[in-house]
């Protein structure tokens, strides 16, 4: 239901973050996340950063699978 985009934070100013996804840049709202800093990775939905995230989905898969097996 919700296409998310994982992106890197380039800069943050006045509740707005400039994010970069593979070179595509856009300003999004940073209002819903505390202490966002350049270099953080975020999940963006409909122009709002909704979660601070870690970058690699493969590392995550490794962790989840190791717990499973």
């Amino acid at each position: 239901m919700c296409v998310g985009l994982s992106a890197k934070v380039v800069s943050v100013k006045d509740g707005t973050a400039l994010i970069d996804a593979n070179g595509a840049k856009r300003e999004v709202s940073a209002d819903l996340l505390e202490e966002l800093e350049p270099g953080d990775y975020v999940m963006v939905h409909a122009g709002v950063a909704i979660a601070k995230i870690t970058e690699s989905d493969e590392d995550e898969a490794n962790d989840v699978m190791e717990n499973l097996l």
Binding site: G4, S6, D31, L32, L33, E34, M43, I50, A51, I53, T54, E55, S56, D57, D59, E60, D63, V64, L68
Partner: peptide
């Protein structure tokens, strides 16, 4: 129940978003 998306989903979710 298993959270298979821990890099994005935290147990508490995003409280600021819910308050808003």
């Amino acid at each position: 129940f298993v959270n298979c998306y821990p890099r994005v989903v935290k147990a508490e979710g995003n409280p600021s978003a819910r308050e808003l």
